[in-house]
């Protein structure tokens, strides 16, 4: 379970992980905007196919890529179904289940297909960012972009303790009593553990002089030569995307 949530791959040392997080954030946001604005089908298809290839070349296991794509793919397919059956006026197919009759429309299918491609292409960009940039670096970049410090601090704590909670959840799930598998008991146990943990963490923070959010904990590094090279490459990709819109 940890593999799906972990940013272990972003901690590895390679050209893309070494690049400044701010650059990657700006690039991915612009790429998503251009992808969403694209009217041609081949643009999202290119992204959907090329991002996994890049990630595989960084030795990210295919299983992890598929796991991470599954959730947005599920949402995208639901949207495709809704669009196909509830939007349009040219019937292409009818489904009868007892008294229930569903009609698929050509316009809905086309529209839904375009939405699916855009969702999956945008998700691929996010996947690219999350596999090449650790969450602390993303949050540091967020602070540099003047996101609210309180929100960033909560994200830092969430990032830290999500793995502790996952361990606790695993321990409870592995308990020999089958009755503990009841979702209510499991959730209750995790909530109590989280509550205890929050008190202990608060005390530890107080003992190390915590008063308020302190942005001095975060220091962004200066841009390096490789970052300027990346600006050039990212720029070319964005121009290509823009021209294909």
């Amino acid at each position: 379970m940890n593999d799906i949530f972990s940013d272990y791959f972003a901690q590895r040392d390679n050209f893309l992980t070494r690049l400044d997080a701010r650059l990657k954030v700006v690039f991915v946001i612009m790429a998503i905007i251009l992808t969403l604005g694209s009217r041609k089908v081949f643009v999202p298809w290119c992204i959907i196919l090329s991002v996994p290839v890049i990630l595989l070349s960084l030795k990210v296991p295919l299983k992890i890529i598929i796991h991470r794509i599954c959730a947005p793919l599920g949402i995208a397919l639901s949207i495709l179904c809704i669009q196909t059956f509830y939007y349009g006026g040219t019937p292409i197919w009818r489904l009868h289940i007892g008294a229930l009759s569903l009609t698929a429309y050509a316009e809905g299918l086309r529209y839904g297909y375009a939405i699916v491609l855009k969702i999956m292409a945008s998700t691929s960009w996010v996947l690219f960012l999350s596999m090449t940039t650790s969450l602390p670096k993303l949050l540091e970049a967020g602070l540099w972009f003047k996101l609210p410090p309180a929100w960033i601090e909560v994200c830092f704590l969430t990032y830290r303790y999500i793995f502790v909670l996952l361990e606790d959840a695993k321990t409870v799930f592995d308990a020999p009593f089958r009755s503990l598998r009841s979702l209510g008991v499991l959730a209750g146990t995790i909530v109590i553990k989280a509550y205890d943990q929050s008190i202990a963490t608060y005390e530890a923070m107080m003992l190390r002089g915590y008063k308020n959010i302190n942005q001095d904990l975060v220091t962004m590094e200066r841009f390096k030569t490789a970052d300027f090279l990346a600006v050039f490459i990212f720029g070319l990709i964005l121009i290509a995307l823009g021209m294909s819109c």
């Binding site: 969450l135 602390p136 949050l139 830092f156 704590l157 990032y159 830290r160 303790y161 502790v164 943990q197 202990a200 963490t201 005390e203 530890a204 923070m205 190390r208 002089g209 915590y210 008063k211 302190n214 001095d216 904990l217 975060v218």
Partner: peptide, 22 residues
């Protein structure tokens, strides 16, 4: 329990927590 005391995302940030607050 070290989980109680280590609340920052990275090692350096956690060690810096006290000195920064000083």
């Amino acid at each position: 329990n070290p989980e109680d005391q280590l609340f920052s995302p990275t090692v350096a940030q956690d060690i810096a927590f006290g000195p920064v607050n000083m």
